[in-house]
Amino acid sequence: MASSVAASEVKKIIIACEAGMGSSLMAANKLKRMLKKAGINGVDVKHSAVRAIPKDAQIVLSHEGLVQMARDKAPWAVCFSFKNFSNIPAFETITEALKTGADVVSEE
């Protein structure tokens, strides 16, 4: 499993939930706006069902109850987990790293 990715290589971020129809989409909307506010362009933020994570994602975020499945499905990606769809601390980490051009690092 990847634990870090260079900011310049981040083109697609996936937020994954079980069904891929509600929670992940709402969370993706939030991250999109955070990146836009920070002036970060060229990064695609998408939602997905955990079982269908696209192959071209560099970063995957998922609920703690699903993150192991996410890691299994997308071993090439840097994975972050969270407890609550309405409060995802990794959004700050990712936005800050992309803004400053630092590596996006997951310590999980």
């Binding site: 079980e18 929670s23 069902a49 609920h63 769809f85 309405s86």
Partner: peptide, 24 residues
């Protein structure tokens, strides 16, 4: 069933209940 596994509360007084993958 979905709500039992994970809350769909999204903040600011809004919840978004929905089914699971199989329920499509």
């Amino acid at each position: 069933a979905r709500e039992k596994t994970m809350s769909t509360y999204m903040g600011n007084g809004v919840a978004i209940p929905h089914g699971e993958f199989e329920n499509r």
